[in-house]
């Protein structure tokens, strides 16, 4: 379980990262916290020709309130998301990421770019309507979270692009509920409830290849339905797959229950 040989570049600027990635012909990988990348390197499931270490790039580690949102630099570690008070939903979600050691190294930009459908931050990103700032050879662009995640571990980022920051809007009300086998495991189901500009969003992680909005459940609430009704609608509209930890019907039931709990926490749809 030792990684295959690779070249290593310690980048000092985002421009350098983009340049090295472009020169690697799609064979380069960004190393940030390494909490997902290093294990797959060790298992030789990933074999990049070059690793671009972004940890020393200045200016990517800030958390800044900005109007009705909070801006998070790509290199902000999960442990800092837990500690910050500007975005309580982000703090709550980050508490559920892995264990202390993982939260101390893992980064916000890395987690979103890795696009694990069971990870917490991608669900929060979609749930809050976050946008990613992305640097590439032709400059900087903004990508909405909903457009970022294509399928499990696949994003719409080009191979020579890098997320440099994330902008998470602040919900007026929110709820977060997660179900996992053990403390710190990837979620079987994560439910994020957000109220943004008066509209309620329900977003689920772990039930599909990307974070999934529960559109029917949202409609139930918009039509004056209760949390229980919305939870049932959410359970009905998803199509989860079975794995070692539970059948599809079990995941469906758990998803409904997590939606109910998140709505209760948000104080939405309560009888």
């Amino acid at each position: 379980m030792k990684c295959a040989p690779f070249d290593y570049v310690r980048a000092s600027s985002v421009e350098e990262v983009v340049k090295v990635l472009a020169e690697s012909d799609g064979d380069g990988k960004i190393l940030a916290g390494g909490q997902s990348l290093v294990p797959v390197l060790a298992l030789r499931m990933a074999r990049p020709s070059v690793l671009v270490d972004v940890n020393r790039i200045p200016g990517l580690g800030a958390i800044r309130p900005s109007g009705d949102a909070v801006e998070v630099g790509a290199l902000v570690r999960h442990s800092r998301l837990v500690e910050q008070t500007n975005h309580p939903l982000l703090a709550e979600a980050a508490r559920w990421i892995g264990h202390t050691a993982i939260r101390a190294r893992g980064t916000a930009g890395g987690s979103v770019a890795h696009a694990d459908p069971s990870a917490e931050l991608p669900v929060v990103a979609v749930g809050t309507g976050a946008t990613a700032t992305v640097a590439g050879p032709s400059g900087v662009r903004s990508v909405a979270a909903e457009d970022l995640f294509l399928s499990a571990l696949v994003t719409s980022l080009d191979e020579d692009e890098m997320i440099t920051g994330l902008r998470f809007p602040l919900p007026t009300r929110w709820g977060f509920a997660e179900f996992a086998r053990r403390h710190g495991d990837f979620a079987l189901v994560t439910a994020v409830v957000t109220e943004l500009g008066g509209a309620v969003r329900i977003t689920l992680g772990g039930v599909a290849s990307v974070p999934q909005r529960a559109a029917h459940a949202e409609q139930v609430l918009a039509d004056g339905g209760t949390a229980r009704e919305a939870a049932r609608a959410a359970a009905d509209e998803i199509d989860p797959t079975a794995d070692l930890h539970g059948s599809a019907p079990f995941r469906r039931a758990i998803a409904g229950e997590m939606v109910r709990r998140a709505l209760a926490q948000a104080g939405i749809g309560q009888e």
Binding site: P39, L43, H183, L244
Partner: peptide, 15 residues
């Protein structure tokens, strides 16, 4: 199918 500790669940002190 349970070839890593991601799938083979060991209890931790939290459990």
């Amino acid at each position: 199918s349970t070839g890593t500790l991601l799938d083979y669940l060991m209890p931790t002190s939290a459990e």
